[in-house]
Amino acid sequence: MASAHAQAAAANEPLRLVVEVNEGIRTVIGISRQVNLVAINAMIVAKQAGAQASGFRVVSSELRRFSRQLDGLMQELDRFIYLLVHSVAESARVHRHRHHLDGIAADSPAAVAIAPARAHIDADRERVDAESRVRWRDLGFHLDRALRLCGTGVALSRAAKIEAVYASTLSGDLRQVAGEIEAAILSILDTLKALRTGIAGVR
C-alpha cells in the first residue's frame, strides 16, 4: 500500500507544480497592476513638480510600459497553464491505463493477448510525456523572459530613485514612491525566481 501511496503522490507532483505556478502568476499579475497604478500616480506628482522632475516623469512612464509588458507576458503564461493541466491529466490517464495492465501476470496467455494494447499505451505514454516535457520547457523559457524583463524593471525603479533626488520640494515624496515601486518589482522577481527554481527539476 505504501508504494501505491508513493506512486499517487509522485503522479500528483506535476499537478501540484501547475497549481503553484498558477498561483505565482496571479501574484505577479496583482503586483504588476499595483506598479502600474503607482507609476501613474508618480507621473502625476512629477508633472506637478515641474521641469525639475522631468527625468522622474520619463522613468515613471517607462515603468508603466514595463508593468504592461509584464502583465501581457503573464497573460500568455495562462495559456501555458491550460496546456499543462491538459498534459498532466492526459499523462495521468495513460499512466493509470498502463498500471491496470501491469496486473496481468507476465507469463500468462493474457500477457500475450494484451501485448499489442500494452505497446499502444506505451507509445501513447511516450508521446504524452514528450509533449509534457516540451510544455514545461516552454514555460521555463517564458519565465526566463519575465525574469529578464524584471531585471529591466529593477534598473528602472533604481533610476526612478535617483531622478527623485532632483525633484526639489517633492523629492521626499517621489523617493518614497520610487522605493515602493522597487520593493514591488523585487517581490515580483522573488516570485518568478521561486517558480523558475520550482519547475527546474521537472523532466
Binding site: 493509470r96 491496470h100 495492465l101 496486473g103 496481468i104 500468462s108 496467455p109 493474457a110 493477448a113 494484451i114
Partner: peptide, 19 residues
C-alpha cells in the same frame, strides 16, 4: 471496473481468445 480489468481479462483469456 478498471481496477479489476487485469483479473477479468486474465481469467477470460484462460477460457477463450479475447479477440
Amino acid at each position: 471496473g478498471s481496477e479489476i480489468f487485469a483479473a477479468v481479462f486474465s481469467a477470460l483469456t484462460m477460457y477463450t481468445d479475447p479477440q
